[in-house]
């Protein structure tokens, strides 16, 4: 494969996505054959662009909160004072991953009602796990002689954390954030079943009214967003890994 081909494909995908979101009307003839009985071709109960932005906003807020909490927790259990919690926290991560996102989403509803809140909570909780797990991996697999050198140079615990441990773990933590964002994009889609304003609405509306055009446009937008964001974050991760002298596999 030529080196420029993937970049070209990505660029084309971005252009298509932006075109579709700003001027969905242009694509009407393409999707027309998928509808029956003169049903609407382009989603008509809200702007696709607004839904996309709301979708991204939920994921962004939840991931930021999850990142702060998960990294803080990982730092806590890797300090001497929190070392007692380390084995347990590993088990909890293992257990937590067996909870399907849908279950977390549905179970949040009785606590906070319908709308954006249960979606945010589910995204936040489910987003914690990969970030916590990766932060833990990053902070516990630091090269021993580098840590020895940091201590030997007379850095205090705080200086070691900020100047050495966190920068060196950054690529691995970013990997966790990337997984978390991808899961978040998917979970936010399901969030529309509990009345959150996300792109899932388009797909669900399509499923309910048997409108293939809705299903397809909703599915394609979400899929394109996920692929592009995953790709972008992977690139950031590779760059940081190179910068930190940690080669990723």
């Amino acid at each position: 494969m030529k080196a420029w081909l993937p970049a070209l494909l990505r660029l084309a995908l971005v252009v298509l996505l932006v075109a579709f979101l700003t001027n969905p009307g242009w694509f009407e003839p393409l999707l027309k054959p998928l509808t029956e009985n003169n049903a609407p071709v382009i989603y008509n109960q809200g702007s696709l662009l607004t839904l996309t932005l709301l979708h991204l906003r939920i994921v962004l807020i939840a991931t930021m909160a999850a990142t702060i909490v998960a990294v803080a927790l990982a730092i806590l259990v890797t300090r001497p004072a929190g070392a007692e919690f380390l084995p347990l926290s590993r088990s909890l991560v293992n257990i937590g991953q067996t909870f399907p996102p849908v279950a977390v989403l549905a179970l949040a509803v009785p606590a906070v009602g319908f709308g954006e809140k249960p979606t945010l909570i589910a995204l936040f909780l489910y987003g914690l796990l990969p970030i916590f797990e990766n932060a833990l991996t990053g902070l516990t697999t630091l090269p021993a002689n580098v840590m020895e050198a940091a201590r030997g140079a007379g850095m205090t615990g705080w200086q070691r954390l900020v100047k050495v441990e966190l920068p060196l773990s950054a690529p691995i933590i970013l990997g966790g954030i990337r997984l978390s964002v991808v899961i978040g994009l998917a979970t936010a889609t399901i969030g529309s079943t509990v009345a959150a304003k996300t792109l899932g609405e388009v797909i669900i509306a399509g499923l309910l009214s048997n409108n293939l055009a809705f299903i397809l446009q909703g599915g394609l937008i979400v899929a394109a967003l996920a692929v592009l964001i995953y790709d972008g974050l992977s690139a950031v991760e590779r760059y940081t890994a190179r910068r930190m002298g940690r080669e990723t596999a």
């Binding site: 889609t189 899929a223 692929v227």
Partner: peptide
């Protein structure tokens, strides 16, 4: 990898057609 990235509802939807 790209397939894994696509959210489940979206993939279900895309397969319907």
């Amino acid at each position: 990898n790209i397939i894994q990235t696509i959210p489940s509802i979206a993939l279900f939807g895309l397969l319907i057609a």
